[in-house]
Design a protein around this nucleic acid. Structure first.
Lengths: 209, 209, 209, 209
DNA sequence: AATGAATGAGGGTTCATTCAT
DNA sequence: TATGAATGAACCCTCATTCAT
């Protein structure tokens, strides 16, 4: 669903424009849905539930979204945007494989936990439409491929011990995806804390002695 | 579903008794369902799918099972049986926290991958009925609690470095549950190989330097 | 929907009064809707479609019309106005049953094809509200009754052979209504051509030898 | 929806086999739906209506049919089967263009009216899926093309006067399709009577003087 | 021991309609 | 005059479940 253009309007800085309102509400919808998806899974989350949680009718959702599928797709895209950001950051500030991985992992986890829900749908890859699965699959492959490459780099530059890059990435991605099932923003551990701890565990797991 | 009594029947040692037949078929049903559940998720797996894969009608399944829910419940129980076995083994052969954890992890993963599907349903915890969720939840807590305890033991006996036991367990459990989404018995890596590799990664992550 | 009074306003001869504007736009709306109805049917034509074709929002339509039903009703009335005109013309210029029928048919078809869409809704009689169906039904009966009468007259005055008046009228009305599904104003055959051809076919079908 | 094979079973001649039962019920469903379609149109006929008329639940229909669309499609196919039969018959027994057309028209109408409902959906061509529309469209074109050809033949062999073949076919097809909106099997005129009368009208309309 | 047939609840989606602005 | 936003009814369809055979 794409929003049509709209003239800027006066009061620009005081009140929200209609477009901003729209975007805000849409964002809220995605967030709420994503939360439900990661709690109960895509298929077990009814739009009625989502709507009720937002205080509107099911039909109202369709003003902001074409499809239930679009919601899932959008969520996946969002979470991959985080991945891209994390990669960019790691690439810029890390000096060897090991450092880059640590930065990548930590940034990624911080972003994810900061806006959890909007992204915690990684588990629901199979619920994507074949067409969408292709798109998201490509991005996931890119991410994992980059991750693996980093492991290889680290091994090559001596900062990491000789682990299996593929299994290592799976190992870590599991931990991340699982996060979405138990992480509670208002819980005992802050997102930053978890990010740091997980990064530490992974680092210890693969660094060269 | 509990089986009613049935006279033992002659030919006992030659042919399978009816009860054995029943048990065999039921087991096959559970396995097949579990496989489907871990591939596509509980709610996206229809009983028709399962039945077709077994070569029978949907209705036939109800002879072996009361409910779709019962299947899921049973699968969860099975996978926890593996956990219990792994614990028992680790407890018997490990000499300190670190060793026990390694044994636990490795045994658990080997069991899981050997009969994947029967257990790959860990991801579908939320699809359980509240009542069943309570039961399985208790077993899960027991398992994780024991796991955490092991970490604490290891830290105490100096075999492990000072990590957060709770997060560590979550970290690892994520990797395990995720396994069910990508592991392919006929794929590149054998179950044993993965078990060993994962155990190695975890060990490196938490052992004292 | 009836328009409330409105003062005539100055500039009367220069600009369109508000009432004229209103009428113009309403007419455009009816025409556009009718076109869509005859192409896709009443129930498969959404007001959004109609609105989009007119360059406004769905809501805007409700300023000119009370109901979707009102549109259909109005269209039916329009098409019957054409029938009435054709009758009047035929009655004035035809000298016997056969001539009158030929004139009726030809005039009717020329009017219909000239403003096709505004009338091509004959097929959607069943989509009318019971109340409206009664009203339109009466007019339709009047038309068909007059038509049948003409056939009887023609038989009586010897200009037509002895055909079944009722079936003859049905026969021809079918051809007319079907027209709305294939006639293309910008197509191969002009409305006049079709009117002439169809009139010719009917005439040959029923004239006395 | 295709039915799987089934062994013949004893009592073959006494009781209906399951397959026959199935076919019978399916046929009834199609007939009932077709009746509703031609009365109210495809989009305004809800499966609930159809089911209620058959005394079952909406869901039950899905045991016999994959889709609402499949019903429509099947009806169209049925009616074209009648067209094919009529063509075959006309081709065999007619000796020139005029005779063949008369036979075609009469046979076709008799078949249609005998099982009206099962076929009276010609009007709902636009409600077909693009894919199905292609298939049915091809058959319709074939039929109309053959019909036109017959007109040309008749003109060539001198049995028909020089009419426009295309418009003539449209003219007649309109009458036929319209039939489905007013024909009542238990009404004043029998199917045979109508078939004969319509065939007579068309014949008079186009025969050479 | 298994099947065919049917049910009912629930889910996603569309759309005419309303109303405040 | 016209729009954005929301609603509720209706619809198609799926699926776990039941029951007679």
């Amino acid at each position: 669903m794409v929003r049509r253009g709209r003239h800027a309007g006066a009061w620009k800085n005081v009140v929200l424009t209609q477009d901003e309102q729209f975007a805000l509400k849409r964002r809220a919808l995605l967030r709420q849905a994503a939360r439900a998806f990661s709690e109960k899974g895509y298929h077990d989350t009814s739009l009625t539930d989502v709507a009720k949680a937002l205080g509107v009718t099911k039909s109202a959702l369709y003003y902001y979204v074409d499809d239930k599928q679009e919601i899932l797709f959008e969520c996946h895209k969002l979470s991959h945007d985080f991945g891209d950001q994390a990669i960019e950051y790691a690439e810029k500030h890390g000096r060897n494989g090991r450092e880059k991985i640590s930065l990548l992992v930590r940034t990624y986890l911080e972003l994810l936990t900061s806006e959890l829900g909007a992204c915690a749908v990684l588990l629901e890859f199979n619920a994507l439409t074949p067409a969408n699965r292709k798109i998201i699959g490509r991005r996931r492959d890119t991410f994992e491929h980059y991750f693996r490459k980093l492991v290889q780099t680290g091994i090559a530059d001596g900062s990491l011990r000789k682990v299996d890059p593929k299994l290592t990435v799976f190992f870590f991605m599991g931990a991340v995806n699982w996060l979405t099932r138990w992480f509670d923003p208002s819980g005992e551990h802050s997102g930053e804390h978890i990010a740091k701890e997980f990064a530490g565990l992974l680092d210890a797991a693969i660094r060269s002695r």
